[in-house]
Amino acid sequence: MQIDLKGKTAIVTGSTRGIGYAIALGLAGAGATVVITGRKQTDVDQALNKLRDQVQGAQVRGVAADLGNAAGFAILQKAEPVADILVNNLGIFNLQPFAEIPDEEWMRFFEINIMSGVRASRAYLPGMQQKNWGRIVFISSESGLNIPADMIHYGFTKTGYLAISRGLAKSLAGTGITVNAVLPGPTLSEGVQHLVAPDADYAAAEREANAFVKEHRSTSIIQRVATPEEVANMVVYVCSPQASATTGAALRVDGGVVDTIS
């Protein structure tokens, strides 16, 4: 199967590193014009240069803005008013006991992990409706189904994405626009690498992460962490013309962690 996204513009939020960058790389490799976003201009520039090195002739642009608030999103929308593909990847996580999570932290997670996707989808949907074609993808998590006891506020936001994506897909019934959620499981992104082994190299961090999966996500069938590229492969497919009959779905890339046949 050859995925061809030439002529399509894709915005990937939170895409200077990790899963977001891997998605941007995959979409650029399929021929899409990709817009990378991040809070800092230096991070955006570094990601753009890296992507251009990895994909010869890549059509990529970047916008530096804090999409965790409405003002930052206005900057993105002014710079990039139209998108054919939107991947709502921006998100934060943190280990914290429930009793120690203040109101401010709940609201911070809600603004970044939920409202960034709501604002982006609301803004770019009209352009997709005019063309009667579009792809919206929400990056949820297996933690939205298996709520982690030490990251309840994070799990809550990822469950929220499942509800939003399903409802939005239903509201677009009969159109050429699909809306889906992708649920990564434990994935060795830069953020996870820093969490499990902040001072170690990649190989050591991978060993630590795999040990974590075996001990704390014992239902994993692959018995290891996934790579950001493995998650990105699912997202690129969902964004493709070939995925036209896939909508309203919660697509797991969790290595089998969620122990259900549905």
Rank of each mutant, 00 (worst) to 15 (best):
A47C: 02
A79D: 08
T178E: 13
K170L: 12
A204L: 11
Q54M: 02
E190T: 10
D201A: 01
P148D: 06
P241L: 01
Q77N: 13
T247S: 08
A163N: 13
T247F: 01
T178F: 04
L48H: 09
A28V: 03
A197D: 09
Q77P: 13
D259A: 15
K78R: 13
R119S: 00
A205C: 05
N89Y: 02
V235H: 10
G20A: 00
Q223P: 05
K214F: 13
L86R: 04
E230F: 08
A70I: 15
M115D: 00
V192N: 04
G248N: 06
Q96L: 14
E215S: 14
T246P: 10
S121I: 03
D201E: 00
N210V: 00
A47D: 07
S15K: 02
A47E: 05
E208G: 02
T260R: 15
I114D: 11
I177Y: 03
G160A: 04
N88H: 02
A28Q: 04
G167Q: 08
I101K: 05
F98E: 00
Q223V: 14
A64K: 04
I261D: 15
S143Q: 12
A28N: 06
I114N: 11
A249N: 04
L172G: 07
A70N: 14
N49F: 11
P228N: 03
H216T: 06
M1G: 12
V60L: 02
S171H: 05
A65G: 02
A169D: 04
F98N: 07
A203M: 12
E206G: 12
S121K: 00
Q56H: 06
P184T: 06
E100W: 11
V35W: 02
I164H: 04
S220P: 00
E142P: 00
L90I: 09
A204E: 09
L172M: 04
I136N: 03
I136W: 04
Q130R: 15
S189E: 10
A181F: 07
P198I: 10
V182Q: 05
N233G: 14
E215Y: 10
V257A: 11
P148I: 08
